[in-house]
Design a protein around this nucleic acid. Sequence first.
DNA 1: CTGTTAGCGCATTCAT
DNA 2: ATGAATGCGCTAACAG
Lengths: 331, 331
Amino acid sequence: MATIKDVAKLAGVAVSTASYALNNSKRISTATKERVEEAARQLNYKKNGIASDLKRTKTNTIALILSDLSGPYYSELIKGVQDVTTANGFDLIACSSIGDQQSTAVKFLKEKRVDGAIILAHNISDAITIESAQAGFPVIVLDRDLIDENVYHVEVDNTEGGFIATECLIKHGHENIAYIGGPSASLDNQKRFDGYKQALEQYQLPSHSKWNSIGYFTKEGGYKATKLLIAQGELPDAIFYGNDEMAIGGLQAFQEKNIRIPEDISIIGFDDIQLAEYVHPPLTTIKQPKYEVGALAVHLIFQLLEGKNINSHYKLSTELIERKSVMLKKQ
Amino acid sequence: MATIKDVAKLAGVAVSTASYALNNSKRISTATKERVEEAARQLNYKKNGIASDLKRTKTNTIALILSDLSGPYYSELIKGVQDVTTANGFDLIACSSIGDQQSTAVKFLKEKRVDGAIILAHNISDAITIESAQAGFPVIVLDRDLIDENVYHVEVDNTEGGFIATECLIKHGHENIAYIGGPSASLDNQKRFDGYKQALEQYQLPSHSKWNSIGYFTKEGGYKATKLLIAQGELPDAIFYGNDEMAIGGLQAFQEKNIRIPEDISIIGFDDIQLAEYVHPPLTTIKQPKYEVGALAVHLIFQLLEGKNINSHYKLSTELIERKSVMLKKQ
DNA sequence: CTGTTAGCGCATTCAT
DNA sequence: ATGAATGCGCTAACAG
C-alpha cells in the first residue's frame, strides 16, 4: 500500500509538500498540487488515518457505547447524538459493551481511540467509567448516577414520569393502582416507583404492597407478573407498568383471560417505544425526550472539549402520551 | 496523560521493558513486571491504542457500515456480525454513512482505520466501495451486486422470496394478485418483483400492470399506494407488498375504508420485521435469514484476512412465515 | 512556495 | 532478563 512517501517521490516533491497538497493547504501552488494529486491517484494512495490521528493527538470522533449494538434501539437518542456530532464536524462510532472487560467499548474508552464517549450500557462498570474519564477525555453517562470529577450525567426525570403516569390514572378515577416494575437494581425503576408512591401519597390513596411487583423489563417479565396478579384473584383498577415492553406483555396476559383493556382495567406504560402505538389498544404511556438527551450529551462533550466549565448534572422532563389504554373508571 | 515513557521512568526501567511487562511477555521477571504495573497504576497509565495500531499496522477491528445508526435496525443481522466478530477476538464498530462523501463511514473505509468492512448502506457509492477495497482490506457488500476483484457479496435470495410469497397467495386460491413494491431503483425490489412475475407465469396467472405499483419502502409509501389502489375501484384478491413496512401502511389504508384483512383481501409482506407479529391481523411474510447473512459476512472477512481464496458471491434462502393476513379465497 | 526535520506513543529487533 | 535504537505514516514547526 502506497504511503505519502511514495506519492511525494512520484510527484518529485518533499513529503511535507505532498502532505500540504493533499490537505488543501493554500501555501501550495496549483501546479504542484495537481501533480501530487495525480501521483496519489496513480498509486491509489489512501492516507493512513491512524498515523494522522497519532500525529495530531486527536481523533475527531466520539464513541457512543451501547450495551448491545443489535438493540432494542434507542433510535431517537442515537439520532440526537448523531445530528449534533456531525453538525460539529466530528465522526461518530457506536460500539458494544458485550464482553464486559474485553469488549470493544472498554477498549475504546481506555485507549484514547476517540475524543469523548457517551455511555448507555449498564454493564460498563462505574470503576471503568471513572478510570477512563479524565480532564481532556469527557465521558457522559446516561444510565446512572455517578459522581466523579470528570464524569457528567444526563438523565430523564424518571420520578416525575412515574408521578405523571400515576396521576393520569388517578385523574381517571382509579384508586387501586398497581405498579408492576422492573428489576429492583435498576435505578430507572426505583425512580419511577418513587414517583408512583409520591403520587399516591399526594392524592391520599392507599399503597398496598400486594399490588407492587417486580420483574424483568421485558415482555415476558410483564406477562408473568400480570399472570401472577390475575391469579391473586382480586384485580386493581389500573396498572402502571415500569416500561412499555412489560405493559405489552401484560396486554397479552389479560387478553388470554378475556379481561378487556381499558374497559375492565386501565394500564399505562413508560418509554413510548415504537410498538406502543401499534398494540391493541394503543398504549397510553410516558414519553422520554430521548432525542434531546442524545443531543445534549454530545453538546456537553463539545463544551468540555473546548475547555468550558459546565454543570455535572442535567435532568430532562417527561411527557404524557394519551392513547387508548386508560379510560374513566365506571362507577 | 501518562505515556509508557513515564511509566518506564517511574519504574526505573527501559521503555521496551515496560512495554514487554505491560503486554505480559514472559521474558520479564515477575519482580520488574510488578514494579512496572505498580507504576502504571500510580500514573493511571492507559496505552494509546492508536499508537499501538500504527506500530502493528493492524487494528483488530472491523467496521459495520450502516446507512443510519438510528436504524430501522437490522438487529438480527448485527447480532450475527457481532457474534462472529467477537468469537474471533476482533472488535466491531458501527458507523453511519450519513453525509455521503463526508461521512464517518467513508473515512473509516478509506483511511485504513479498520481491518475490514461490511457495507449495508445504499448511499455508499460503488465507486467508493471499489476504490477502498484492496487485497488485504476485505470489503463485503450486503446490499448490491458489485463485481470487483476485492469486493465480496452476500445476499438473500429475493427472487426466491418473491416467488414464495406469490405462490403462498396463489395456493390460497387467489388469482388477481397485486404487487405494491418499493423504489424501482432498489435491487431488492426488482428481484422480489421478478419472483412475483415468475410465480404468476408458472401458475399461468395473468399479470396486469394496473396492479403493479411502486412507492417508497415505508409505511407512508404503502399507505399511499394502497389508497391509490382502492381509489381505482376494483380490488385484487390479494396483495404482495415489497416489504413489511409498506404492508403495515396498507393495513392502515384498508382499515380506514373498512376493508377487512384477510376476509376481504389477503396480504403478504417481506422481511419479517418485529412489528409484523403485532399488527392486526398479524402479518404473513417472508423471513430473511439475517443473522446468517451477518455471520457469514464476517466469517468471509476472516477467511480473506487469513489469505484464503473464497468465492465472490453467496446467496441465502428465505422462508415463509404464515400468520393471519392470508386466508383461503371464498368462492 | 517548498524542503528538512522532529516527533506523536508504541512494539520490536538486536545487542548485551 | 533488560536496554538502546528504530520506524509505523503522518503533520507541522521551522528554515530557506
